[in-house]
Design a protein around this nucleic acid. Structure first.
Lengths: 345, 345
DNA sequence: GCTCTTTGCTTAAACGATTAAGCAATCTTT
DNA sequence: AAAGATTGCTTAATCGTTTAAGCAAAGAGC
């Protein structure tokens, strides 16, 4: 029943030496500090007897580094972020870092809160999936000289390190895939957001359609609020189906949107892909279970997560590191939901 | 460009007072410590000018409490745990606690590592979803007098606080539901594990069938390894379908198993529920997307997560708290995958 | 035998906060 | 006016570690 944690002092007392000596021994600095062999052995012996575990608080206070990273995401219960979080956790652990995760719910105020709490807890650096209207926060971190790297989303107008997807090419690829598969009226469901990654996805989609025979029609683009996904997705799909030129294919800009939309398409009794072809961003087990496996844009999750950690840790080691602005490509995994259309005419 | 963080000392210097005074003021102890009004105002003024943010490391080192909880789960990328994690995070934050999450991958060694890392980081207490063969770790925490509460899984032979599901009644309920729906040969896919919650699920299922006309047949029970889910689920389903009395309904003991199993059932071209009825533990968006909405056992996630945090925090406030051993009930959400069978004979 | 180096340890400051104890100066009381 | 109480602050110890600096004893060099 060890009531109290054992400290350096306890070991020092029991060994009849100073805490400095114990510290040297337990940190493997015996050589540099010329510690006697027998005494070193005895210290180690006593340390293990007392089951000594160093207090990281004290270490950190002294060293000024906590070996802790803050990870700010929208919502850990969203599978995309949960996956990212797991990869970040593992990569951090490999480098002896611990991660503290915070969910911002895409809310700028909550994001501020999280950043402040984590700064107070002295994290060494941040990995941030930015929410809308958080440019100010990013600027603040830059000014305060706090290390961070943006993940998945970045601000083109702020010079920062980032690791993200090439969203334009991903969306373009999705649009092209459908057009080449014989679909002419391709809809797109996105979030109503000024976040660059979302604008890029929309831009990629629009460009792909503009390059097609049928062109792009604004009626085919639906933008929904973060806070009211289910209702607005339904309304959007209704509109796109009732348009002058009704859509025969639909791209979802995120996994969440796809889940919501596919449920509704089920309810409507529409047949995928005959009535409506589907492509979605982000992989998900759910897509495998769908009666018609869903074509999706596979993001290099592992690479995104690992790279962001590595970029950050390198920056912590050497603050003079050059800017790292990394874009990765998505891979389109074609399945039945977007199979080549058999033309009737 | 504040290069350095501002500390109490900086404020004290600028105000021409001692750090003690500053500490009293900023902690609202002016009354008890009889601090002059103007000087208090000045200190506050300077603190906000310098954008003072207290160093939690120092606070914690002094107070012996970090206001940090460790949450140990199997895998944050599993939606069940991700959900739990989010709820725990929110409830903790309400009480001014921060959570550090660690994924053990159901591996006892990794679990030990996590516990040790978090102890070194001086977390105030743990919320633990135990992996198999971690009884020793739990006993260690008890002996060291470290606060913790078990979540979702517990060990009947170790006296601890816990918050979990009544797994026996949940599985029993699932079995009964299918039997009453006219299914006679009900299979069960579980993990091969000595973990009590899994044994209870199996026991509940077996008892439900034993109480039915057709009784229970060992061939209908498949247990698969954590590490080889996909292959063993397939093999198990093959066996249960080829049994002397082939199954006409199937219960999955977890969400992961269901995803794996449903994929295979799709591949086999079996029709749910006509060829095979389905009930699964755990809700998931994926179940909504399935062509035939899946009947599932809804766990009171919110209550589980919140209660575990509350139990732990109460224990931290008052270590003499009595044992809290809380079992919650699952709700069966009946959908088409288990609809009442139209008997042919 | 005297200085110089090396060996093997200790002392003490520092990280940033909290807080019990102490000490003048002023105010109250009788 | 003397004693006691109150006010408004400071001093210094403390939490557990690290690490530069110091110091005594032993060994080396001449």
């Amino acid at each position: 029943m060890n009531k109290k944690k054992t400290s350096l002092k306890d070991i020092a007392q029991k060994a009849g030496v100073s805490t400095a000596l114990v510290s040297y021994v337990l940190n493997g600095k015996e050589k540099e500090s010329r510690v006697g062999e027998e005494i070193a052995a005895r210290v180690r012996q006593i340390a293990s007897e007392l089951n000594y575990q160093p207090n990281y608080l004290a270490k950190s206070l002294r060293s000024g580094r906590t070996r802790t990273l803050g990870l700010i995401i929208a919502d850990i219960s969203n599978p995309f972020f949960a996956n990212i979080a797991r990869i970040v956790e593992d990569e951090a652990k490999k480098n002896d870092y611990t991660v503290i995760i915070g969910s911002s719910d895409e809310d700028a105020d909550k994001s501020w809160d999280l950043i402040n709490v984590l700064i107070n807890r002295q994290v060494d650096g941040f990995i941030i999936v930015s929410s809308e209207h958080t440019e100010e926060q990013i600027q603040y971190l830059k000014n305060r000289n706090i290390a961070f790297v943006l993940l998945d989303r970045y601000f083109p107008d702020i010079d920062t390190d980032y690791v993200a997807l090439d969203n334009y090419q991903a969306a373009y690829q999705a649009g092209l895939h459908l057009v080449e598969g014989g679909y002419r009226h391709v809809g797109f469901v996105a979030y109503r957001s000024q976040l660059f990654h979302m604008r890029e996805r929309i831009r990629g989609y629009v460009d792909a359609l503009r390059g097609s025979e049928a062109g792009f029609c604004p009626e085919w683009l639906t933008e929904v609020e973060f806070t009211n996904v289910d209702l607005e997705v339904r309304a959007g799909i209704d509109l796109m189906l009732a348009a002058e030129k009704p859509i025969d294919a639909l791209i979802f800009a995120t996994y969440r949107l796809a889940i919501s939309g596919l449920k509704y398409i089920n309810e409507l009794g529409l047949n995928v892909p005959d009535d409506l072809a589907i492509v979605s961003f982000g992989q998900a087990e759910a897509f495998d279970l769908y009666y018609c496996p869903v074509t999706y844009l596979q993001q290099p999750m592992e690479a995104l997560g690992k790279t962001s950690v590595d970029v950050l840790i390198n920056k912590l080691k050497d603050s003079q590191q050059e800017r790292k602005q990394i874009l990765m490509e998505a891979t389109l995994i074609a399945r039945n939901s977007s199979k080549i259309k058999v033309l009737v005419d």
